[in-house]
Design a protein around this nucleic acid. Structure first.
Lengths: 385, 385
DNA sequence: TTGGTTTGTTCGTACGGTTAACTAACAGAT
DNA sequence: ATCTGTTAGTTAACCGTACGAACAAACCAA
């Protein structure tokens, strides 16, 4: 009964994430933990045998055999056949996660015109797409539109579904409640619960930038200490420290759009302050500057990048980040912008800090958030990715 | 055999800290985890009975009884007698961590003149003090001075020792190797291992600011998402997110002293750059400015505080911190400084971000780092605090 | 064929957890 | 004084999960 086992796997994951777990550890928790370890090992590197897993994970062959046979029953793992290389001894039976046999749904609610979604296999390969227009009435109608999109995608999935992930704008708590999302007219909407009930599926909801950084970590080549900055109509970011997403004391972590940059004032911002990062970096602002008569495009972009670098320098220093990823702007904007960010961060931090820092654009393109949402499910359900 | 059990307790703690543990969970790990849970519960709040613990931790009374009897044997827990309030039923036997029966040593290597250290009980109450001068030759002689101080303190301890913690300047990796500490002439010094061997004791080594933030969290009223800024000859910081210390990709997290502040240049810094935070905030610089003829003390301190606020604003926003703690300056300096930091942070961040933020001075005074070092031991050995 | 090697399974054992039932120790009503 | 009800902590029987030992299967090499 896989349905009996998965919830306890989630319990363990939550324990591990919390750090100081005030939760008990029973035998069943150990088992689901080991299921997760096996899945992780296979997910990272297909074509291991039971004996390989036993050696790698430090468990006995018999335990591994038992765990694997459970996973085979649940159709989460498949046998690939015997190893072909000619070693002495009985040839190993190679295993792999059932990558094509299960599907995951990912939703991105952060676009302006429509909610978009995909169906993928466990590798994150997209097998279907769908979208629905965002109703102008917002609020509860928007929730219903999401439910409709989810139903559409479920109908498009060729195989059984592991779950659905959602990346939404706004503030999201760790139970998937959208505390506040002004763009969608949401306030304390228990999105995770509503979708989970209406679809009868495991659902994970996270902030769009948080989903993005998780996706980049798993499907891109993201490092464990990473910040991902999304530049669009506004500016937001997702932060990952030691492989864990940072939520913050009130789930508002990453909201850097309205930090004041520099000590030389700046333009007024919608928030009422002057010189916020968004006044320098939001795409509409940049486009407006580029459209000004006599505007020097390279100077405009250099200044925008420099301002982002000024904000990033203290963050990179305080956290000793590995990597900063930019997402959002089109290719013609992003290259000079990135160069300027890079220069500013390096000018304003110690070499010890920026020595190993990598700055780059996202590798996932427009699917950044949907793929991140998919990874939320992989992490929550299987503990992999 | 307590000596057999403690190391496995540490294994579990490390797993929990790591997040995605690639370590197996056996029955014995479960037991040590539950020992830790019991100790935590008792440590936070003395005077619980076995039945209380069972209810609180979700374990059965019999398991709790077994765990408690182990802890009683190891002298880590004591019985306080029966509960006095008159309820029906058998009166409860109250328990407590053996707070006075065990000692911990804390060392602070971050002062200029001498290495200082204390012996405390498990509550962090100081029962003895000692110090040794820092040898001018530094390097290996400095290590020997630390060893000497540790021996002196061990002789002063009235009870059995749980371990020793060390807060040292410089970059420290997660195995207690001092990667680099220019002030002490250290480079890749395996301090934890050397002290552990020479003293025959469990030893935990961490950066001084990291130790400080851990100490403030446990013995002060620190919140789980906290940054502690130490202001002295230089400026450093320790960062805690969701109760875990942030080390960073290269263990350099918290090094904010040489972030450039603002967009209006600034004075040259020893690092070769201009306008670093230290040029505004380091105590020698502030004192020099205060000593200038015609200097306005309140203006000098306001500007120093504002500069720190400018650096903190992006960090507080990105991490949605609960709390920022200042340590170092004397009382006459700290009050106006703190006010200026507060004002600058609030001026430069969104209300959602600074709404719940608390800015304050350390509650631990000069013992900040030694007490933090003590907490390192409490965390590592008992999983408490 | 024989011997050596590796894989994966079966068997018995150990450990830690649980529930159920017990004894101990109290307050309060009769 | 005694009975009832309640709570604390222990004992006994059982269950799930891990392990080591032993074994059958499948291969290479001599």
């Amino acid at each position: 009964m896989p349905a009996d086992i998965r919830p306890s796997a989630r319990v363990l994951t939550r324990q591990v994430d919390r750090g100081l777990a005030s939760q008990r550890i029973g035998p069943s928790e150990a088992r689901s933990h080991h299921r997760s370890l096996v899945l992780q090992a296979l997910y990272r590197n297909r074509g291991r045998s039971r004996a390989d897993l036993a050696r790698e994970l430090g468990l006995s062959r018999v335990t591994i055999s038992e765990v694997v046979s459970e996973l085979l029953e649940d159709a989460l793992v498949v046998e690939l056949g015997t190893r072909s290389d000619s070693q002495p001894g009985k040839p190993a039976t190679l295993l792999d996660v059932n990558r094509q046999g299960q599907n995951i749904i990912g939703l991105d609610l952060s676009n302006s015109g429509a909610f978009v979604g995909v169906v993928t296999d466990l590798d994150g390969a997209v097998v279907a797409r769908a979208e629905v227009d965002i109703p102008s009435t917002l609020g509860d109608d928007a929730v219903r539109a999401v439910e409709q999109l989810l139903r559409d995608l479920m109908a498009l999935a060729p195989g059984p579904l592991l779950g659905a992930g959602v990346g939404t704008p706004g503030i999201v708590d760790d139970r998937g409640v959208v505390v506040s999302a002004p763009n969608l007219g949401w306030r304390d909407v228990p999105l995770q619960e509503r979708l989970s009930v209406s679809a009868g599926l495991h659902v994970a909801v996270a902030n769009d930038a948080d989903a993005a950084v998780v996706g980049e970590r798993s499907f891109g080549q993201g490092r464990p200490d990473t910040m991902l900055v999304r530049i669009g109509r506004g500016v937001g970011s997702g932060l990952m420290i030691d492989g864990r997403v940072v939520g913050g004391a009130r789930h508002v972590a990453g909201e850097i759009g309205h930090v004041v940059v520099g000590t030389d004032e700046g333009e007024p911002c919608a928030c009422g302050n002057r010189g916020c990062l968004e006044t320098w970096l939001a795409i509409p602002r940049i486009e407006a500057r580029l459209a000004e008569p006599g505007a020097e495009p390279s100077a405009v972009l250099a200044e925008a990048g420099r301002r982002l670098g000024i904000v990033l320098a203290p963050i990179v220093s305080a956290l000793n980040l590995d990597e900063v990823i930019l997402a959002g702007p089109s290719a013609d904007i992003s290259t000079p912008l990135l160069d300027a960010v890079d220069a500013a961060v390096r000018d304003r931090t110690l070499a010890d800090i920026h020595g190993d820092l990598r700055l780059r654009m996202t590798e996932l393109g427009h699917d950044l958030v949907v793929l991140g949402a998919v990874v939320l499910v992989l992490r929550g359900q299987l503990g992999v990715a």
